[in-house]
């Protein structure tokens, strides 16, 4: 199968088995910012944006991305530097393996509910697990990002 999509604003196409998942297409083509943790849609490490909504690329068929507008952490942090600045300033990370997913989810929250309260932030971000931080600095980072918008 040949998948064609717009990836981080640029045309992209790749030859891939038809049962491929989006996470594998991205990672095998050098977009390793998207991580695979749980592989079952629970942890959020693999979050990308497809047509302005967040998607777990580990359980998203690459075929569904055909012709769609896909953004990964690499593209979003370039397009929207405030996103990166917020996580750097508030140290919303330790080991960093969950961080790209947190960053992409923060961007998604910025689209869905830019005025989110602390508890709305926690609720939306609850699908992005982090084993390191205890979540306080991540919540702060997201708040800082939303405030910049």
């Amino acid at each position: 199968m040949n998948v064609k999509m717009t990836l981080n604003g640029e045309p992209f196409s790749a030859e891939t088995p038809s049962d491929s998942l989006l996470v594998d297409v991205l990672r095998l083509n050098g977009f390793t910012g998207t991580k695979e943790g749980c592989g079952v849609g629970v942890c959020g490490a693999c979050t990308v944006i497809v047509n302005e909504v967040p998607v777990a690329s580990c359980i998203y068929l690459a075929a569904l991305a055909q012709g769609q507008d896909v953004w990964t952490v690499e593209g979003l942090t370039t397009k929207d530097p405030a996103l990166l600045d917020a996580f750097v300033e508030k140290e919303g990370m330790q080991c960093g393996i969950c961080t790209p997913g947190q960053v992409v989810s923060a961007y998604a929250l910025g689209i869905e509910n830019p005025k989110a309260s602390e508890s709305e932030i926690r609720e939306f971000m609850a699908g992005n697990l982090c084993r390191c931080t205890g979540y306080v600095t991540i919540t702060e980072s997201v708040r800082t990002y939303l405030a910049s918008k």
């Binding site: 909504v53 967040p54 609850a126 699908g127």
Partner: peptide, 9 residues
């Protein structure tokens, strides 16, 4: 249901 990524898909 689930999390934002499940709900959007």
């Amino acid at each position: 249901v689930g999390n934002p990524r499940v709900r959007s898909v």
